[in-house]
């Protein structure tokens, strides 16, 4: 009788532990998904802004067609990319081409004096920063999630319920690693 009671209590405690661990893992997973959708919102915003910027500097930059075309190409590549790794790569490329566009813009005093371009440039700078912040937040959340599905004893629950590690949204460009933000 006593043995049965002890076993029943143990079983209930085990079940309780199992459910609470599972729930907290699910909570973390949802936060990772949320963080990803944050990145997505900002990336979409950047896709929308780029054509406007290209449109408004096109008139000034007859000799810089290459740069502009590279930006447009990088944008459509980034839109088409799927999967976190490919997406990260395409986005990094887009960031680099945008940087070279900004560098070219610096050489044209006419463009710099145009309030409209300046405004778009500021919007884009802000969006770039938001992307890097959203990525930072996402990676923090992924780090926390990955840790919590690997620590003992939560890893038992994670393995049983099929939780797998999430991928980081990584930066591959070395120069970007040193200066993660565009500053004006």
């Amino acid at each position: 009788m006593v043995v049965l009671v002890v076993l029943a209590v143990l079983a209930i405690a085990l079940a309780l532990w199992f459910f609470t661990t599972y729930n907290s893992l699910i909570g973390l997973k949802i936060r990772v998904d949320n963080a990803w959708s944050q990145i997505d919102v900002q990336l979409k915003r950047r896709y929308d802004l780029i054509p406007n910027l290209v449109e408004s500097v096109k008139g000034y930059m007859q000799h810089e067609k290459d740069t502009l075309e590279r930006v447009i190409k990088a944008r459509s590549q980034a839109i088409d990319a799927s999967g976190i790794k490919d997406k990260a790569q395409a986005e990094n490329f887009l960031t680099q081409t945008l940087k070279s566009l900004f560098a070219v813009v610096e050489r044209y005093p006419d463009i710099k004096a145009n309030q409209n371009v300046l405004k778009l440039q500021e919007e884009l700078t802000s969006t770039e920063n938001k992307i890097s912040f959203a990525r930072q937040y996402y990676n923090d959340e992924v780090g926390r999630f990955n840790t919590s599905i690997q620590v003992v004893p939560a890893n038992i629950v994670a393995n049983a319920c099929g939780f797998t590690r999430k991928e980081f949204f990584e930066i591959e460009d070395k120069a970007q690693k040193e200066a993660p933000k565009v500053q004006f």
């Binding site: 949320n34 500021e122 802000s126």
Partner: peptide
């Protein structure tokens, strides 16, 4: 106001950094 818009952009950026 351009400066105020600039501040709003910065505040929005930080709002992204704290998770939206």
């Amino acid at each position: 106001d351009t400066y105020h818009q600039y501040l709003k952009n910065i505040v929005d950026e930080v709002s992204v950094a704290i998770g939206g």
